[in-house]
Write a protein that binds this DNA or RNA. Structure first.
Lengths: 200, 200
DNA sequence: CCGCAAATGTGCAGAGACTGCAAGATCAGC
DNA sequence: GCTGATCTTGCAGTCTCTGCACATTTGCGG
């Protein structure tokens, strides 16, 4: 690992900016927050803010991008022989031990729901981990990176995870997210066969 | 149909703005184009531009949003008993007869690839038709709109269509997009079972 | 230690994005 | 035609975002 003082400092600044942006936006609403305020809260100049993020919106969803990167690394670390959908289930269970990070996550997700201008940025974060997942799958299966199979699998899986996360955040009783992920993965594995049990 | 003069005029203005934004961005690059130029090309004031779109980016992908809406309407019009994946295949074949619109589509897709700031907007357009599809599925299956099945199916299908479109646009020999869609839908229907034929 | 090269942080100036407001122009229905 | 509703426009002003020059800090070899 080449984690010099320089890189650690940069990462700290980036996280401080992201956290400040999120907190201010949650408290006052995104439109009421200026870059100047975010920079001040993170103790840097406004100009420096733009060295890290190209917009307020990007800073607010920065934690999402990190989460997506984290998920990609965990997926890459799973045993190569494991079926893809099984890896996804396992990784989601791994990622859910951290209560404080979950609380911040929920706050951010609710903010995105109330601020439409954040939706595109949120989706872009998912797209990043989708690319990561596709690359992992291509390597694992020995297929070409331009092949349809890894790309479709990655896209479908990330879409399913996104739906599971959204539904979980919207439900009042926060059961286990991993269980919801299990259910959406089951649906994928079943080939989206039409109409499951009509429900009681 | 309540298509008064007013509404038709508004639609014409919206399309003119979208087309002007796209053409100017393709010609000069998105960063070099100002809202003032777009407005002038569409023969309205700059202030009016912002009555239709909240940013340059949104205007450039306006055609995508329309396409997505079109797809939603076509899907809703399919026979209610038809399996979902079959409806998707059929709709994609329906939508591909129009050569001139396809050419504009390709130009726009290439622009999105070269301008990263358009990616989030592009994804947001897909998200809109995903919601539409989920609503259609919920109604068709009689399930609740908050149920996982319609949401996951819609998300997976739209993700697959997006991958198919992207791959098709990136390939040099533009075969039949509908064929590519067929292949990705096959993958979905097969439950993303691991590693198809390793390929020659 | 010391000094150099590279990477970062900052201030400044300026173009452009975007918004609220109020007034003028246009359309729909009576 | 008259009238209310809707759409367009200009204007003023704030904020976003960028390029550039300069100061500061870090990494590294001497």
């Amino acid at each position: 690992m080449t984690t010099g003082l320089r890189e650690r400092k940069k990462l700290r600044t980036r996280r401080a900016l992201g956290a400040a942006a999120l907190e201010l936006a949650v408290t006052h609403g995104l439109a009421e927050v200026t870059v100047e305020q975010i920079a001040e809260a993170a103790d840097v100049s406004p100009r420096t803010f733009f060295n890290y993020f190209s917009s307020k919106e990007e800073a607010v969803v920065a934690a999402d991008v990190e989460r997506a990167r984290d998920m990609g690394e965990r997926l890459a670390a799973r045993p190569a022989g494991e079926p893809v959908l099984a890896s996804v289930r396992a990784v989601m269970r791994e990622m859910l031990g951290d209560a404080p990070r979950s609380r911040e996550w929920i706050a951010q997700a609710r903010l995105v729901r109330s601020e439409p201008s954040l939706v595109p940025q949120q989706l872009a974060a998912y797209a990043a981990s989708e690319r990561r997942l596709a690359a992992i799958l291509a390597e694992r299966t020995g297929l070409d990176a331009t092949d349809l199979y890894p790309a479709v699998t990655a896209a479908a899986v990330m879409a399913a995870v996104r739906v599971a996360t959204t539904r979980w955040l919207e439900s009042d009783e926060h059961g286990d997210l991993a269980d919801v992920v299990d259910r959406v993965v089951d649906l994928l594995a079943a080939g989206l066969r039409d109409a499951p049990s009509p429900g009681p």
